[in-house]
Amino acid sequence: MARAGRAPWLTLQRREAIEAWLFVSPTLIGFLIFFLGPLIAVVFYSVSEWNLLSGEQVFVGMANYHDALRENPDFWHVIRNSVIFAIGLVPLNMALALTLALALSRPFRGVVFFRTVFFAPVVTSAVAWAIVWKFLLQGEGGTVNALLGYVGIDGPNWLREPDWAMAAVIVTRVIKMVGLNMILYIAALQAIPRDYEEAARLEGASGWQIFRMVTWPLLAPATLIIMVITTIGSFKVFDHIYLMTGGGPENGTLVLAYYIYEQAFEFFNVGYASALAMIMFVIVLALTIVQLILRQKGAA
C-alpha cells in the first residue's frame, strides 16, 4: 500500500517540474540568448582590439583596461561626470519626490490634477523631452532665459557652459522622472497606518516631529529601494544626454553610457568600448551590493 501510494505522488511532482520548466522556458531561453550570452561575450570582446570598419580582431589581453584606467585621461573625466551626475540627480530627485508625495498623499481638491501633472513627463518619450528642453534652454533667445529676464535674472548660456550644462541636464532629467518616485513614495505613505500618526499627534508632536520620528523611519525600506532604482537609472542615462548636449560642451556632460556608445558606434572601437561596458557593469554591481548591505544593516 505504502509503495503503491508513493509512486504516483513522485510522478506528479516530476510532472509539475517539467510543466514548470516548459512554462518558464521561452523566457529563459530568450534570456540566455539575448542577455546572458551577450553579457559573457562582452568579457571576451573586452580583451581584444577590434575595429568595426575593417573587421580586424586581435587579442590584446588587458590592454583596453590598462588604456582606460591608466592611459586615457578621458576615462576618469567621464567617471567624474557620471558621479557628479548621480550625486546631483539622486538626492534632488528623491527630495523633490518625497516633498511632492507628502503634499499629495492625502485627498484634497485638486490632488488628482497635481498628481497627473507631475507624472505626465514620465510617460513622455525622453527624445521629445530632450528636444523641447534643448530649445527652451538656448542662450539669449531661449524661453527659459526670457522668463528669467522678466524677474530680473540674467540667465547663463545653459547648454554652452560645462557646469551649467551639467546642471541643466540633471534638472531636466529630474523633472522628467521625479513623478515615478513620487508615486512610489505616495504608495509607501499610504501603507503607513494612520494610527501611528494620530498617536504621535495626541502626544503633542508637531508636524515636523511626526515626520522625523514616525513617517521617515517607516519610509526607510521604500527610500532604499527608490535610491537603488534611481542610482542605477542615473548611470544608464543615454538618450537624454545624446540629444541635449551630445556630451559637450568641453566634454562636460560626457557620461559613461554615452562614452561607451561613442567609442563603439561612432569610433567603432569595439574592444575598448566592451572594456568600458565591463567597467560599467562592475560599478553598477558594486553600487547595488553596497546598497543591499546598507539595507541589511538597517533591517537588523
Binding site: 554652452r160 560645462p162 560642451p249 568641453e250 562636460g252 561613442e262 569610433f267
Partner: peptide, 15 residues
C-alpha cells in the same frame, strides 16, 4: 573622426 572629437571640447572652451 578622432581628431575632430579630440578638438571639439577644446573649441568649446575657445568659443
Amino acid at each position: 573622426p578622432q581628431i575632430l572629437a579630440a578638438q571639439k571640447p577644446k573649441f568649446d572652451a575657445l568659443w
